[in-house]
């Protein structure tokens, strides 16, 4: 079920960037890779809070980390951004499949059934 997980990742990506602090962290990392301490400087949040936000970004596939000596360096993970396209791909496939199914069911209906539905719709 690769598609399902791609959708989850992309959705998480969208949600993860909805938070202003996380967006600020993401933007800083977009400019250059950095360690937690460097990220915390210039942000109005504590170091543990930055770590927490990084964890969310990491889980969303937007950020990855590598160890350099004792430091952990965070950077943007382009796979998370690519997941947005994968999500759209998946999204439209699901939508168009639903449309085709609907069109077929409508085609199978008699004119009388359609009329009844139209009347119901107008009453609403």
């Amino acid at each position: 079920m690769a598609n399902l997980s791609a959708r989850r990742t992309a959705t998480e990506g969208f949600e993860a960037l909805g938070d202003p602090t996380r967006r600020a962290i993401f933007e800083k990392l977009a400019a250059s890779p950095a360690a937690v301490g460097e990220l915390a400087q210039g942000l109005p949040v504590s170091r543990p809070a930055v770590s927490q936000h990084l964890r969310v970004l990491e889980e969303a596939g937007l950020v990855s980390k590598t160890a350099e000596g004792t430091r952990r360096i965070y950077r943007i993970d382009p796979r998370g951004i690519g997941a947005m396209r994968a999500w759209l791909d998946d999204h439209w496939r699901a939508a168009m499949t639903a449309f085709a199914r609907f069109a077929e069911s409508e085609l199978a209906k008699t004119e009388l059934e359609r009329e009844i539905e139209r009347e119901k719709g107008e009453e609403k």
């Binding site: 439209w92 496939r93 939508a95 168009m96 449309f99 077929e104 409508e106 085609l107």
Partner: peptide, 28 residues
């Protein structure tokens, strides 16, 4: 771009109407 094609039994004019006018009825 994302490209998705489907075949439906309805001719274009009806498919167009079902797609646009009735979007809320088929949208997941």
């Amino acid at each position: 771009p994302v490209v998705v094609s489907v075949r439906v039994g309805a001719p274009p004019d009806r498919a167009f109407a079902l797609f646009s006018r009735d979007m809320g009825r088929w949208w997941p």
